[in-house]
């Protein structure tokens, strides 16, 4: 359970740490969209280079990023597998009934794999280098324009920050309940699938109970302290757009231009 790195913050002082959360969120979301511009190996090399530079600049050890990919590995491989099977074209290496492994299939599968891993890496760069509270502040700021369309932006941000705030608690509590049930003789990760699923009940039930209790307490406390939805409020923490944040966005634009250029290069081959 402690191996889960999603939503954890890795304290540091790196260049990436000091970026404004808004810049980081915009850059990461933008990156996911630009990924779709990639269509040949040159563009993928460029994207990988960008990903690695971002990871290096965050000063977080690479093995931690690799650990972030591990839980999703099966999902990725499954998708890649489907892609390989259902893309036709080019040389055919293997054919058995409807199952065909072709050159294009393999290439496409590899590209899909790269895309997944890069998306995970880049979003992990953001979550590892940004405090959860800054992340929600950033999201809140970015969603502000939607307020005009009567979207309850503040409420959404509050919900997000409460959930993020309680992730560590929930993980700690999961660990505690798991320990307690293990002390009563439960063994996790052993026996048949059905047996393993049964061992989850003694974990999740106490967690649900305590989460519900906590939610109710939290609601009461907020009410007692005068929280009202829809009230205008100011923020204690202010976000400041700095020079380096503009640099970050410029890097993204340069990346796009590079991709567009390499993409067309590819067309001539």
């Amino acid at each position: 359970m402690n191996k889960l790195i999603l939503g954890r913050y890795f304290p540091g002082e790196s260049w990436v740490h000091q970026l404004d959360p808004r810049a980081k969120i915009v850059a990461a979301v933008y990156f996911i969209f630009v990924l779709f511009l990639a269509n040949n190996w040159q563009t993928y090399v460029l994207l990988w280079a960008f990903t690695f530079i971002a990871m290096r600049y965050s000063q977080v050890p690479i093995r931690i990023y690799l650990r972030g990919v591990r839980p999703l590995l099966y999902l990725i491989l499954f998708t890649v597998f489907l892609q390989i099977l259902f893309t036709a074209g080019g040389k055919i290496y293997f054919e058995w009934g409807p199952i065909v492994i072709s050159e294009y299939g393999l290439i496409n599968g590899f590209y899909i794999f790269c895309r997944f891993v890069m998306i995970i890496f880049v979003s992990t760069v953001v979550t590892l280098t940004t405090k959860p509270i800054d992340l929600t502040d950033g999201i809140n700021a970015l969603l502000k324009p939607l307020r005009k369309m009567k979207v309850p932006v503040d409420e959404i941000a509050l919900m997000l920050s409460i959930s993020l705030r309680f992730i560590p608690n929930l993980l700690d509590e999961t660990q505690k309940v798991m320990d307690a049930q293990r002390a009563r003789g439960t063994e996790f990760g052993e026996g048949s699938l059905l047996k393993q699923m049964k061992t989850l009940v003694p974990i999740f039930l106490p967690l649900f109970v305590s989460s519900l209790n906590r939610a109710e307490e939290m609601a009461n406390v907020m009410e007692v302290r005068g929280y009202q939805s829809g009230a205008t409020r100011s923020s204690f923490r202010q976000l400041y757009w700095k020079h380096r944040d503009s640099v970050c966005l410029c890097v993204m634009i340069t990346l796009t231009l590079g991709l567009l250029w390499l993409r067309n290069e590819g067309l001539f081959h």
Binding site: A180, R182, A183, P206
Partner: peptide
């Protein structure tokens, strides 16, 4: 482990949070 856990009964802090059945 299994043997040790049978021999050693452990009452955690606030053990009521492990009730589930």
């Amino acid at each position: 482990f299994k043997k040790v856990r049978k021999q050693v009964g452990m009452v955690f802090q606030f053990p009521e949070s492990q009730l589930f059945a």
